[in-house]
Design a protein around this nucleic acid. Structure first.
Lengths: 250, 250
DNA sequence: CCTCTCGATGAATCCATCT
DNA sequence: AAGATGGATTCATCGAGAG
């Protein structure tokens, strides 16, 4: 499959992860950084399967005000989520260099299933990075869901001297708002720019859930190379546009 | 079994949780707040089983300088940890009022197993509270394990109007040091004092892994009642002493 | 350019009502 | 009786616009 965007430092495919991953060379990637659909909104099966991701996650007035496109793949139950994620992560492992890392975003509800998938795919689980969102909806009589999590896995032992960074285990950052927001579940660039530091400078970052391309923007901005894939055509186009902007602004 | 400490507001037993829980009345507890042994130090089976908890968790000079007593129950593998915790949490559920909460401390490694046990025991999983430890050992080439986690479960629906608090999902607090430290894995009082707020004022807090009694100190200091149990005799004595101090200082 | 006020927002959740 | 639907709720934070 031909990429829809390609330069020396960045490649972006519009397509499914499982059709693109096998075409990548083995032992070539330094960091797999993905934000898969969490598949966790809604209490009942029909909540999960019937509604679109937008109806599930964008609430109140915002639901009518927002003009962001919907995204695909948010309709699996927990078993199939685990199965699906395991396959993708196993394919990713093949492309990863010895000592490479894997970072997977998840919410509290899917954290255990995500850790199962990470390990079943052959990665060694190394820890949890906590992302604190300062703006969270309060909850009467209990605790707010103020954090999302990033599971950290590694392909074999990590040689600390190869990339001697000391990274924190907690980050606080707000979701992009207003004009900067191009995707319903967009992650803040500051956060991604920090996560990308587990890959050595000049190393390659892979994201097969590219969405609006934030991971790529962060990778390029931090002096890493980027390979991305995104299924939803509308978002792939936005991602290509943002990658071009990022490279132009260097 | 007779308590080793008893007042109007606090009761402490020196003994195993499973011999004490069945003696407590049903539907009487508003919050079960426990910090079970994580059973996760050491990578190999023999690390877990051979070494004492003190050797695993107290490193370097601290191990020789400190004279903290060892604690029991830190030698299970993950399967038996889940099984053991499920039994304890199921017994706890019986003592819990409708709408009561359960908070269980865990580290990242045991988080999935702990969520399994919580749900297998019949509690509804409601979220994860993150405890950030500002002073954590850095790790070359990767992310620091800067956080521990508290899993939140509930016994049936929570009536927010009964205890209309709005609690955050992230707390930052340092482990007690120096003379204030009476237990190897002691939790900060400030943190426990916040967690205890999910129980209504005057409500009852139960901790069957009382350790040096911090949960009781926090509960009494925040105007809640306390029921505790601790297996290790040395710690039960310390806990009784600290409960008495807490009640005297009111 | 900085400070202040004002208003909009949230990878939700709860509950009553309807099918 | 169980599942589906729709509307109300909540406040710390952040962006925008005014002073």
């Amino acid at each position: 499959m031909d990429p829809i965007y390609r330069t020396d430092r960045a490649t972006l495919y519009a397509g499914d992860a499982l059709s693109i991953l096998p075409t990548l060379p083995a032992d070539s990637v330094d960091l797999v950084l993905v934000d898969p659909p969490y598949n966790s909104g809604g209490r009942t099966m029909s909540d999960r399967t019937t509604y679109s991701a937008r109806d599930k996650y964008v609430s109140g007035d915002a639901a009518t005000a927002q003009t962001l496109a919907d995204f695909a793949g948010d309709n699996r139950d927990q078993r199939s989520y685990t199965y699906w994620l395991t396959r993708q992560l196993a394919e990713s492992l093949r492309t990863a260099r010895e000592g490479a890392s894997c970072l997977v975003f998840t919410d509290w509800r899917q954290l255990p299933a995500t850790s199962d998938a990470l390990q079943a795919a052959g990665w060694t689980w190394r820890g949890i990075i906590t992302w604190h969102k300062p703006v969270a909806r309060p909850r009467q009589g209990g605790f707010t869901a103020a954090c999302e999590y990033v599971l950290w896995g590694a392909h074999g032992p990590i040689d600390g001297r190869r990339n001697p960074v000391y990274l924190p285990g907690l980050y606080s950052a707000s979701q992009p708002r207003g004009k900067k927001r191009r995707h319903i579940t967009q992650k803040p660039i500051e956060l991604l720019a920090e996560l990308v530091k587990v890959a050595p400078p000049g190393g390659t970052v892979l994201d097969w859930c590219a969405g609006s391309g934030s991971t790529g923007v962060a990778a390029l901005g931090s002096g890493r190379r980027f390979i991305g894939a995104e299924v939803t055509a509308a978002y792939a186009a936005i991602a290509a546009e943002r990658l071009a902007e990022a490279e132009a602004s260097d």
